[in-house]
Design a protein around this nucleic acid. Structure first.
Length: 866
RNA sequence: GCCCAAGUGGCGGAAUGGUAGACGCAGGGGAUUCAAAAUCCCCCGCCUUCACGGGCGUGUGGGUUCGAGUCCCACCUUGGGCACCA
């Protein structure tokens, strides 16, 4: 329980007001029961209403909800409730992304079973989430670790295998040579295994892959149609897919061996080639590795370190001259072939030609190994040769080529590339090709707590898919998790099975699926969560697509790209209609919840972190409540357990109520940016809700007397309707709330009569209902609103009430504001200019002379240039 | 290393290329009260001025424009992602 919050607010509750006080706990329980009783959040296809599907990225069941969840689900709830009140059948489901490593880690660290740990956490989190009053259809809830869910996922896998979307090949993993186990990237710390501390190596395993690269072009082209996605996410995805056009050609070997195919996106720099580089995983490197101890040692050196692109890109550049020589296709010059650790086998052909003058990596490499650097072009105004910095102009910049083979002189990089590809194709020694950076999706994981891959290995038949009637292939419960490695691999009997093809004794695949598979189709499953096929087409047809998807920007690439792939795969396999190939119509990426960090130092000057609720504030700054030691305050960062800068939503809800928590996370920052949780901000939110409760209760008790300024109040009301509606529809929740503050101020100050005030207060309840649904129901009832506010149709602003008769125009002199005038809204340009020229400020600035220019923007501004 | 964002008062932030700082917090002053809390009213970017006013001001440096927080270029700092964290 958050003592700080309770103490801080004790005084609010101790008031002696005769009016009933704002009792959040009582109000929230009362209205949650009313909603349950009326079953208002059950998604149905009835009534001929348009549908609206709002989905927040489902949580990993860590066991505790955090403020990030509160923010994420509150945003979705605002949209869902708003859409309910605008006449939609709303689908707003919740589930659990329940497979993954933390459950296995917990089992290893504290004992127990991943299954029990996970389902226990789900129960806890559901219990913490329900008090938030979210408009969720809980009857559709599922966890990805339910056999009913992952069995359907296995069926999907088999269908994808049938259609050629799944295949096997070798791929590298992080290998811990001490624990003899595969490590996740997260488990590699500074190149070492997190438990053993051993230097990690890259090792090849045969693994299952989804053929996402087949759809690279389509996934890229379809980005254009994602009108309601953030531009930055679309750009990140486009860059990730990485379409490039380049030249593919071969270097003939001097020794007559098989030619080396290379791919380059800068064929125009072929004159500057100083060596040919191949990946340590290139077939030629592998062949040499087998017969040459020096090569084997070098390649082994290259395989040290993790598999991440970051590790490979930032590693020190290493090279080995193979002694092989190739012929430059144009000049006939001999070039050496080097093995280089920064060349990826996965991209292009796994071999390149290096042009050090115009590529920084190549240049660093050539300087290190003393290879020649040949300039192929210069800037138009600078002939100096490349030194330590490669000359890499934008492809749209014009440069001057030196003695170019395709006859180029001054040209842009783009034109030069096209001309070179043309030249090579005409000469018959090369071909223009389009390639993608996107690699196929490796889905095999050597872990227990995931969806088993429904495959059987038979000595006679080879790799055989399991029969659908045998699904789900369930995870065994009796496993030992106390040692590293995959417990399925060492289970005495689970692997044993009959071959689905010939019936002979066979062995199950022991790898499980990447948890990204689980989250790549859950949105489709929510449309028919109990169907005995992956989806029910009629339900999918009605509810898909997700109209509004909401989640963290950290999922901008992988999760969203994999989901887009899966929707297409499900369409091909008959589980989704054509209309649902692109599953998320609109995407919103919200920011994180942050908090200040409080730290003291131990005797060794190491930081000791403290929870916000243990801090006291004095005139001299922050100190520890218990002992009074001064505390250093570090600027806000993402809430994390290790830094203890966390505020538990459960504490906040019991101190202030859910409506305050919801109001605050929406009010203080634009939703796409981070929000800093502050105790004073939460207090302010709570005080405001108290004030709304008090004001509306007073209005409810007013007599029917007429007052002054009814029309002004109603104008304010219509403006509030207009702006709050716009704010909600455009995810401007903080702006909508600012308007609600202003409208509340206007309502409080207004001297209007009871009728106008009640009308305005009921509209206030409606406008606040998506954000503070419990308080809104209470006010609505108090003011005699009909039924539940969740069922009341959203108010519509009267355009006639939104226009002002006069406008205030600022007058600038040379772009600086010097005066303002108030004029009728429709006054003509010439009259406005005349009035402006007569103001003192303009006369003073002109000093009797004529202005150079006068700009009048009607209804906006006047600028006099002197 | 590569890709993508974000930087505005003491603080969170607002602002279709058109009055920078809406709204909220913190702070100051006042009303109410025996007193306090709660509540209500007023002030509140920085410098300068008794005041009227003037100058400066949206991370830094340039540019486009009658006019730039907003558009363009370069840089700095912080955050997200980099394919086995979810």
């Amino acid at each position: 329980m958050g003592n700080t919050a309770k103490t801080r607010l004790g005084h609010i509750f101790s008031g002696t007001a005769t009016m009933s006080r704002y009792d959040a706990a009582q109000i929230e329980q009362k209205w949650q029961e009313a909603w349950d009783k009326a079953d208002v959040f059950k998604a149905t296809r009835e009534g001929g209403k348009p549908k609206y599907y709002v989905l927040e990225m489902f949580p990993y069941p860590s066991g505790r909800i955090h403020m990030g969840h509160v923010r994420n689900y509150t945003m979705g709830d605002v949209i869902a409730r708003y859409k309910m009140s605008t006449g939609h059948n709303v689908l707003h489901p919740m589930g659990w992304d329940a497979f993954g490593m933390p459950a296995e880690n917990a089992a290893m660290a504290i004992g127990g079973h991943p299954k029990e740990w996970t389902y226990g956490n789900i129960a806890d989190m559901r219990g913490q989430m329900k008090p938030l009053g979210l408009s969720i259809d809980w009857s559709r809830e599922f966890a990805t670790c339910d056999p009913e869910y992952y069995g359907q996922q296995q069926a999907l896998f088999l269908d994808m295998l049938d259609t050629g979307l799944v295949y096997r090949k070798n791929a590298v993993v992080n290998w811990d040579p001490v624990d003899m186990t595969v490590l996740a990237n997260e488990q590699v710390e500074q190149g070492r295994g997190w438990r053993s501390g051993a230097l990690v190596e890259r090792r090849e395993l045969t693994q299952w892959f989804f053929k996402i690269s087949d759809m690279a072009g389509e996934l890229l082209d379809a980005i254009d149609g994602l009108d309601n996605w953030p531009a930055k996410v679309k750009l990140m995805q486009a860059n990730w897919i990485g379409k490039s056009r380049g030249l593919q050609f071969a270097f003939d070997r001097v020794d007559g061996g098989e030619a080396i195919e290379v791919y380059t996106t800068r064929p125009d720099t072929l004159n500057g080639a100083s060596f040919v580089g191949i990946s340590p995983d290139h077939p030629i490197a592998k062949a040499l590795e087998a017969e040459n101890a020096d090569v084997a040692a070098f390649v082994a050196e290259c395989r040290k370190g993790g598999t991440t692109e970051e590790a490979i890109e930032t590693a020190e550049k290493l090279g080995f001259d193979t002694g092989i020589r190739v012929k430059h296709p144009l000049t006939g010059a001999e070039l050496p072939v080097w093995i280089a650790n920064f060349i990826l086998m996965d991209y292009g052909t796994g071999a390149i030609f290096a042009c050090p003058a115009h590529d920084q990596r190549d240049l660093d490499f050539c300087r290190k190994y003393d290879l020649p650097v040949i300039d192929t072009f210069f800037a138009l105004d600078d002939n100096s040769p490349v030194g330590t910095e490669a000359f890499v102009p934008a492809k749209t910049d014009k440069v001057r080529f030196v003695d170019h083979f395709a006859g180029l002189d001054i040209a842009t990089g783009e034109d030069a590339i096209d001309a070179t590809i043309d030249f090579a194709e005409k000469g018959g020694w090369g071909e223009g090709v389009t390639k993608f950076r996107l690699r196929d999706w490796g889905l095999s994981r050597q872990r227990y707590w995931g969806c088993p891959i429904p495959i059987v290995h038979c000595d006679a038949c080879g790799v055989v898919p399991e029969k659908k009637e045998n699904l789900p292939i369930r995870l065994p419960d009796d496993v030992e998790l106390d040692k590293p490695g995959n417990p399925l691999d060492r289970h005495p009997t689970w692997r044993d099975c009959a071959c689905p093809s010939c019936g002979a004794d066979a062995k199950r695949e022991t790898d499980t699926m990447d948890t990204f598979v689980d989250s790549s189709w859950y949105y489709a499953r929510f449309t028919a969560p109990r169907a005995d096929t992956p989806t029910d087409l009629a339900d999918a047809e009605y509810w898909m697509n997700v109209d509004q998807y909401i989640g963290g920007i950290e999922h901008a690439i992988l999760h969203l790209l994999y989901s887009r792939f899966f929707a297409r795969a499900m369409n091909i396999t008959g589980h989704l209609p054509d209309s649902a190939k692109e599953p998320f119509d609109a995407l919103f990426t919200q920011g994180m919840v942050t908090h200040e960090i409080y730290v003291t130092r131990d005797e060794n000057d190491r930081p000791v972190y403290h929870l916000p609720e243990d801090i006291e504030w004095t005139e001299n700054g922050a100190r520890l409540g218990a002992c009074g030691s001064p505390v250093e305050v570090i600027p806000s960062a993402k809430m994390s357990k290790s830094k203890k800068n966390v505020v538990d939503p459960v504490n906040i809800i019991s101190a202030y109520g859910a409506d305050t928590a919801r109001w605050f996370v929406l009010s203080d920052s634009p939703p796409e940016r981070d929000v800093e949780w502050t105790a004073s901000g939460a207090d302010a939110a709570f005080k405001h809700l108290n004030r709304v409760h008090r004001i509306t209760a007073e209005i409810a008790e007013m007599g029917d007397a007429t007052g002054q300024g009814d029309d002004d109040l109603l104008r304010e009301m219509h403006k509030a309707i207009h702006e709050v509606t716009g704010g909600v529809e455009s995810f401007g929740f903080n702006a909508a709330i600012a308007k609600l503050y202003a409208f509340t101020n206007a309502l409080q100050k207004s001297k209007a009569g009871a009728d106008a005030k009640r009308t305005a207060a009921r509209v206030l309840a409606q406008l606040m209902a998506p954000m503070t649904p419990h308080l809104s129901e209470e006010i609505w009832q108090l003011l005699g609103g009909e039924g539940l506010v969740i069922h009341a149709p959203w108010p519509i602003a009267d355009p006639a009430m939104l226009v002002e008769d006069t406008v205030t125009l600022p007058i600038q002199v040379n772009g600086k504001r010097r005066a303002e005038i108030s004029v009728p809204k429709d006054l003509g340009k010439d009259e406005v200019e005349k009035l402006a020229m007569e103001t003192d400020a303009v006369k003073r600035a002109l000093d009797g002379k004529a202005p150079k220019k006068v700009i009048v923007v009607p209804g906006r501004i006047i600028n006099v240039v002197v």
